[in-house]
């Protein structure tokens, strides 16, 4: 018997703090798998957000910096400009990137900063208890849209990949999901392509990952995975949104 699957070397031993069935855990693991497979452990610098994903520095055995909420893209810009040969990626949630950090993300993309953004879209603010996020769907119930998100009062769910695709500085934008094995494998490929895009100096890359949040969606873990395909993916179509060769 040979080991067919083991924990990636660059993933530390610490147990994940994420809720059962949370997509962050899968994404964290995929990132370290990609970093191991591409041999990037000694070049990688990760900017952690504020939000559920912020404790990644307890799990990633690479250089990490925790940025203020929403400022990851600007911090990553500063790092990359000083250290162009490093692999610099900013891990951000939907509140971090699409709400408070919109300007920073938008302009890093517009400047074509050769950084990668791992954008975890789980439709709510997880860490703070399930409030509406910019990606909360219409009529979706959250703790701050108790009667369902009414677009007239609370706006529409924002499609970051499509918005950023309008910016000439962006080179690779893909939306994937981690709600089933096949999707997880595609997500891993997308992350690899984003990192390769950065290493090849082709400009700005962002991978938007639809991620289940059973606790705050008030669903079972399997139901949450299904909900992504049946409901969420309608608003956030899976696929490559932009790819400059």
């Amino acid at each position: 018997m040979k080991k067919a699957y083991v924990k990636p070397k660059t993933l530390k031993e610490a147990h994940f703090h994420y809720c059962p069935g949370c997509g962050h855990g899968i994404i964290n693991r995929l990132l370290m798998e990609v970093i191991d497979e591409m041999g990037l452990r000694e070049k990688a610098i990760c900017v952690a957000p504020a939000g559920c994903g912020m404790l990644l520095y307890n799990y990633f055995d690479i250089d990490t910096l925790e940025s203020a909420h929403g400022r990851g893209a600007a911090v990553a810009t500063g790092i990359k400009r000083v250290r162009p040969d490093n692999l610099v990626f900013s891990y951000q949630g939907d509140g971090d990137l699409a709400a408070i950090g919109t300007a920073e993300g938008f302009h890093a993309a517009n400047r074509g900063e050769p950084i990668s953004i791992i954008f975890v879209n789980n439709g709510v603010y997880g860490m703070t208890g399930g409030q509406m996020a910019p990606t909360t769907l219409k009529q979706q119930v959250t703790t701050t849209t108790p009667l369902g998100r009414n677009p007239i009062l609370a706006g529409h769910p924002v499609r970051i990949c499509e918005v950023f695709s309008m910016l000439d500085g962006t080179s690779y934008l893909e939306r994937v999901a981690v709600n089933k094995p096949a999707a997880v494998i595609k997500t891993k490929k997308a992350i690899k392509k984003a990192f390769q895009c950065q290493l090849d100096g082709k400009g700005f890359s962002l991978v938007e990952i639809l991620s289940p949040c059973p606790t705050n969606w008030k669903m079972g873990t399997i139901e949450a995975c299904r909900w992504i395909d049946e409901v969420m993916a309608k608003q956030f179509p899976i696929g490559v949104v932009k790819e400059i060769s």
């Binding site: 018997m1 080991k3 699957y5 855990g25 899968i26």
Partner: peptide, 14 residues
Amino acid sequence: AVICPDVAIEVMKS
């Protein structure tokens, strides 16, 4: 192992 969110599964194969 691919879908496990907590990296709790190790797989052996002959």
